[in-house]
Design a protein around this nucleic acid. Structure first.
Lengths: 111, 111
DNA sequence: CTGGTATATCAAAAATAATTGATTTATACA
DNA sequence: TGTATAAATCAATTATTTTTGATATACCAG
């Protein structure tokens, strides 16, 4: 849904840009499998897709799909090294979204 | 999707209960219209549905639907007063989820 | 009780998102 | 070059969520 929300600027404080941006980030977070991927990346630092597939029991195309959603929301980063793509958390972005309490749950190293 | 995620307890730190619980909360947040409702409630404190309908241009049944989702995720509270239902934020719950930065965007009074 | 307002709920339709298996692209290396 | 592995993408299917309009429920005032 790319629809623009009607402006309520006289009442609200969040801009349409805010709404759109955080909708995307919360959508990316709104899935158990993706939360689990985030949690794995938090513990293992940097992981390639081929290492992730056996850890989280999931076909490769499905994993790529979920990684892409996290990537597009800027919650994770990707670095290409030859044949491999290494994924890692975008910690500063996540810390800008999640409470300290939640960071402790999903990014335990940051506690 | 009520599916249980397979246990990866040797690797991850978040429990299945965590995953399930925060999935629901992030789902509730993952919608521009609901983020806007939260923002309105933050500014206006306590509002009945009939006051909300004209502010946010939305049919009443749709508004009730979105309020229900926020309510079930425990992000807002409902208080019945006669014919009216007054909704307000569950501020402590929201602060337990959102970073200070995000609270400033959506719950400006808490800044 | 009757009529009116506030709100929730329901079932059907529409829109979006997730899953799957197959295919493509890219790189590595024998 | 030919083969193998890593990973992304695609199109079709399935599942989930959202929207809509209609109806039901609850309370209030006359």
């Amino acid at each position: 849904m790319k629809k623009e929300i009607p402006l309520l600027n006289t009442i609200t404080t969040a801009s349409n840009q805010d709404l759109e941006k955080y909708e995307q980030k919360f959508k990316a977070l709104a899935d158990q499998q993706r939360l689990q991927i985030i949690n794995i990346l938090a513990v293992k630092e940097s992981v390639c897709v081929c290492d992730l597939t056996p850890i989280i029991d999931m076909p490769q195309s499905k994993l790529s799909y979920h990684l892409k959603i996290l990537l597009e929301a800027d919650l994770i980063k990707k670095e290409k090294q030859g044949t491999w793509n290494y994924y890692s958390l975008n910690v500063s972005e996540l810390k800008g979204i999640l409470s300290d309490q939640l960071c402790c749950v999903f990014l335990p190293s940051s506690c």
